[in-house]
Amino acid sequence: MDITFEHVTHIYGQKTPFEKLALDDVSLHIPSGSFTSVIGHTGSGKSTLVQHINGLLKPSKGKITAGDVVIRANEKKQSLKKLREKVGFVFQYPEHQLFEESIIKDVCFGPMNFGVSDSEATKRAEESLNLVGIPASYWHRSPFDLSGGQMRRVAIAGVLAARPQAIILDEPTAGLDPKGRQEMLDLFAELHKRLSMTVIMVTHNMSDAAIYSDQVIVMNDGKPLMIGPPEHVFLQTEQLRRVGLESPETMLFLDKVMAKARKKERIPAFTIDQTADVVIQILNGVKNHV
């Protein structure tokens, strides 16, 4: 599902003393089937940006096109609901949205709201629960008896059960342990690859943004500062530093190695394997010189 922003401005609390310009004339494009990360300093407008994509916020000015739905400042409710069915949204701490007496009922909530029949909703719920790895023996228990990480999986299954074409993740790994984090990210990568979903992820972790995405959007002060593939964005160390961001740790590590080897060039490498390859290249290079 292609997503396009055209001159989108968002002002919170318009015409009060608390007025806040959160998005300032943003134009950008998110291609169908891509994995896009949104990074930026706290308060730079990341959440505000992504909440426009499924109509949770309406622009104060400008227009957003998502698939065949267009959202302008005075959009009607009906078109928003149609959009929400196609674009799933996983909030930070999504486990806070659980409310039903059993896990399976909670996961059915989304599809039923979108007018899917009982039996079809249950089928989809079971599918999604399998996808996020909640074993069938849990399905009829209360969601409030689960651990934090499991609750989050159930909440994500609740979003997936509506079968969205695109999914938005606002800091989906906040508060998870390293293993839980990794599993969560692998899940999203799989959704992206296997179901060719368009994924949009807000994150504070540069390595995650670098490893998983095709496109990185750097937000600063309500405006996109850079948009491009991670190999390009994360080479702009100076620009990133200016807006309070760092390159991924692998890049920082390689910078140090390069400095030791007295080389200037910079090669983008984000995973441990890539980094190891680059280090080997450097070491070989150094040896050849000596």
Partner: peptide, 19 residues
């Protein structure tokens, strides 16, 4: 704030409080 967040989260799952 919490209310607003939960309203948004459930609205994203298609629930509708206003019609």
């Amino acid at each position: 704030e919490e209310t607003e967040k939960i309203i948004k989260a459930q609205a994203a799952r298609g629930s509708d409080f206003t019609t």
